[in-house]
Amino acid sequence: MSSSLSNQQQQNNDQIAVPPTPRDILLDRIFRSLTTSFAWLTLLLIVYIVWEIGGTALPAIKEIGFGFLTGTTWNPNQGEFGILPQIWGTFYSSLLALFLGGFFGVAIAVFLTQDFLPHKIQIVLKSIIELLAAIPSVVYGLWGIFVLIPLIRPVANWLHATLGWVPFFSTSLSGPGMFPAALVLSIMILPTVAAISQDALSAIPSKIKEAAYGMGTTRWEAILKVLLPTASRGIFGGLVLGFGRALGETMALAMLVGNSNQLSLSLFSPADTLAALLALNFPEASEYETQVLMFAAVVLLFITLAVNIVGEIIISYSERSGGKK
């Protein structure tokens, strides 16, 4: 009797709590060290990429120096290189995309989080918008060339004909150009902006919304004066991340922006971006031109890294302060 009792106790002990065996400890240690090393490896990978690209670019950096950022010619024949038109085009297209994509992205986020729709339809719409992120870049490029450009060309050329004195409309839209590129780019960053803005809006404690209604606000007053300001940091972080994505986007832009080495304010003239420059020129580049292109890649890398880091900092800061509230 007593022996069976002790057996039972032992079994219970097995099920409930035992000190970890040496094997458990070993496994746990291996697991921990593996996960930490993987985490560090990603960091190492970034450092390695920067190191490798920077190393290849070093001869070109030494030779061209700061003038690379302010030069406007790209002439491999005479060894003259400058990427100001590309830097300008990168920021111009991304900012345009940010205005369009940002506006629609935040509007969609408000629409989907503030009970305008039955819950089921909300979820369907949300996943459809997230699907936009799954469309390959090259498909966007083809769609832009064969559908979007013929669609917007008459409108653009009408704008040029009637408002040609405005610098933004000073040329006609021939086909590839800044405006179609920015339009496609805005669709591409829409899911990023919409998803992060939705998270920010739904992270607002329901008490705040109730309090706003309790003070007698209408729905729109509550959204515009209470909810959006409360979620503003998260939304802003989403915008910055969307901007970061737009800066580095390559394939669709290489197909749509027109690859033209010029500085122009006109929305309809062909332009170039850093990523498109890299995509077009790498295949046939000579050894020195490769170094120069690596220099351009370093510039692009720094711009996108900086923008993404700022975005992450803003988001994490907003999450922390949101928690305090």
Binding site: T73, W74, N75, P76, N77, E80, I145, I149, R153, T171, S172, L173, S174, G175, P176, G258, N259, S260, N261, Q262, S269, P270, L280, P283, E284
Partner: peptide, 27 residues
Amino acid sequence: ELDFPGNAMFGSGNSGVSTKIKHSWGS
């Protein structure tokens, strides 16, 4: 390999240039 002035679009290869002309009005 030249730095063309003006409103110049770059394309890769004879076929790349032909395709760009085909899709661009006024080119």
